[in-house]
Design a protein around this nucleic acid. Structure first.
Lengths: 137, 137
DNA sequence: ACCGTTTTCTGGAATGAGTCAAGAAAATGG
DNA sequence: CCATTTTCTTGACTCATTCCAGAAAACGGT
């Protein structure tokens, strides 16, 4: 994967890439901890650098719902969206509702050339609905 | 407005509310500077507190595109979305493309009870398209 | 208008995700 | 295996936002 993206293959990058595959929607700190289970000596900077390189190469996708730190996932180039729980922050994937790349149509684009439409659905996850957990809001 | 929302009416809150009305999509720092033009002595904490109170009362709306600090706007409860320029960060409003509250339908909601669909269109604004400005990405 | 209660504001310190920078280490191409 | 280029380590640093304690201001009732 890395080679195909013209990225040098290093231990930290391999470990970061598989950590993202293993833990979808994990934040940077969780990824650092996961990576260190295999490579105890990696610096946090190496992980930040790897995540940036992988994101720019579009091998991983970075998402950051309001009020959250950056999170990463391996599903990429497939135009999917996310549901986020207002109470516990849990994130789940949602396939685009209307087909191919439909949301890419704004009513008035103000002259912008748009290349992506990102959708975040906000609500409560089943657990927080059931338990009446109201935290954050 | 404040009274109708059951909020105490204080000078800082009034100033913050009108600053948000005067400068749509301004970040907290810009709001602090705008407020201090009228009330030079307000603490930044007062502005943060006011913005939170106003956001919770739904008198202003907080938005935070990935990689940006928090921004505030006064258009509220009208289900509109945003276009963000990848190069310069400029933000413009976009009315919802499909009518009433249509985007509120996810293909599979994973049992979440969804109350809002937030859409961010990413692209380049007219200026950055013309000048070839490629910064950030 | 005044008082007591409650909320908000001031001032300053603290937190924490993320970035910067310099030199050491590792990866690639020949 | 060597030279070149990129990446990693270490540690300092930035900056938005939050926390805290005491002072000040707003509201409800008399």
């Amino acid at each position: 994967m890395l080679r195909r993206a013209a990225l040098r293959v290093t231990r930290p990058r391999v470990a970061v890439l598989s950590a993202v595959h293993a833990h979808p929607h994990a934040d940077t700190d969780a990824i650092i901890r996961a990576v260190r289970r295999e490579l105890p000596e990696v610096s946090h900077q190496a992980v930040y650098d790897a995540l940036r390189a992988l994101t720019e190469a579009e091998l991983v996708r970075r998402i950051q719902p309001s009020g959250s730190v950056a999170r990463y996932e391996s599903r990429v180039r497939d135009n999917h969206h996310h549901v986020v729980c207002r109470a516990c922050g849990r994130i789940a994937d949602v396939d685009c509702a209307v087909g191919e790349a439909p949301c890419l149509t704004a009513s008035d684009d103000h002259g912008f050339s748009i290349d992506e439409a990102e959708v975040i659905y906000w609500g409560r996850c089943p657990d927080c609905s059931d338990t009446g957990n109201l935290r954050p809001s």
